[in-house]
């Protein structure tokens, strides 16, 4: 095979992998910020919990390709390009993070919570010293699901000009070029496996009790 073709392809793979990581990294960070905050609020206010979980569940049921489609005509956040892809990925990652934050916090055992209140902890202290540390493994598990799913979903972001490894795959499919398809698919799968392993390591490290 022509070495220049290989060299160009390799360059593409590197650049697109970088784009992919940024796409996933930024959208996941925003999703963690929103998901964990909404989850904490949800454990304090039943209405917030109901609304946020319902909204996130509905978003999750929309097929990812359709979600990208829905966002396109929306002013400011929509349109062709990376930011639309980011918004879609954030929305898509919310549910597991939100749900696991709520589950993690609400499953702190009643006697532990009762004692924390009776000892005179304020609500922020209970959150910081008791609930979040005890919920951390559950929250991390949610982030892990969101992150790994997100890496896969980000592949589809290429259809709306989001960049990333999906570009290679779609290009390969269009030109019936197996090498190109694999050059996109293999690094994407590798990223997902790597993220999963990394998160599992982190989970084990902070699993306290």
């Amino acid at each position: 095979m022509d070495p220049t073709v290989i060299r160009t392809l390799l360059g593409d793979v590197l650049q697109l992998t970088g784009e992919h990581i940024i796409l996933v990294g930024v959208s996941c960070s925003v999703a963690i910020l929103i998901g964990v905050s909404a989850g904490i609020l949800g454990t304090r206010h039943a209405t917030v919990r109901r609304l946020s979980v319902t909204a996130a569940s509905v978003l999750q049921t929309i097929p990812s390709l359709a979600l990208f489609g829905f966002l396109l005509p929306i002013p400011y956040i929509g349109g062709i390009g990376r930011h639309t892809a980011m918004v879609a990925l954030v929305l898509y990652s919310l549910l597991p993070i939100l749900r696991n934050t709520i589950v993690g916090i609400t499953s702190v055992s009643p006697p532990v919570r009762e004692a924390a209140i009776a000892m005179g902890m304020t609500d922020p202290q209970i959150l910081r010293l008791v609930e979040l540390p005890l919920a951390a493994p559950t929250i991390l598990a949610g982030i892990r699901i969101a992150l790994v799913t997100n890496i896969g979903t980000a592949v589809i972001a290429a259809v709306i000009g989001g960049g990333g490894l999906g570009e290679l795959i779609f290009r390969g499919v269009a030109s019936v070029n197996t090498l190109e398809i694999l050059a996109g698919a293999i690094p994407a799968a590798g990223l997902a496996l790597l993220a999963d392993a990394g998160m599992s390591l982190l989970e084990r490290k902070i699993a306290p009790v």
Partner: peptide
Amino acid sequence: PIVLRRRIGYVIQDFGLLPH
């Protein structure tokens, strides 16, 4: 209530120790 509770000792059947 926060100040009050810190002045009063409280012991329950299920201990309520912080496991972490």
